[in-house]
Amino acid sequence: MQELIATLETQSDPLPGAAFEPAIVAFVCNWCTYTAADLAGTSRMVQSPNVRLVRMMCTGMVDPKYIIKALLGGADAVLVSGCHPGDCHYINGNYKARRRVKLLMEILPRFGIDSRRIKLTWVGASEGNEFAATVNRFAAEIKELGPIDTRRLPLL
């Protein structure tokens, strides 16, 4: 049977003592932060490779389940990033996202998931530099925090 993922020679089993490379999932809106990420790329702004973008149309469609799933499924941290307040392409999706993130911030840290592992930012379409800086800061912060507990646990 084929595996979902073929075993990666270099990745699946890091060598003992190898530096911890966090996996960070970012739910970003198509109109602002995804565009900012494109701009950061076009402007060749070097970023740590740990952040993987999941393109959403709006942060307002980020179901709290997605964040929980990511954090239980091996992501060391989750970034949710959308348009600045007042700039939402869909009028106010980002405000709804903020409440949902707030809710999770009240729940997950109580179970030892460090609140620094869940980040909400506003990065506008023109802020390529801000996007790159956010990615680099966040990755550095999570590297320092170390791997998330759930990685060890055979729970899902």
Binding site: P64, I68, L103, I107, F111
Partner: peptide, 29 residues
């Protein structure tokens, strides 16, 4: 089935049934 097996292989062992913690965290949300 292959998803369960893939998870089990990644983690070495997988609690069955799965998704219990996920369920309770989601219900809390």
């Amino acid at each position: 089935p292959w998803q369960y097996l893939s998870w089990a292989r990644q983690r070495g062992a997988l609690k069955m049934p799965t998704d219990t913690v996920f369920f309770h965290l989601t219900r809390l949300a």
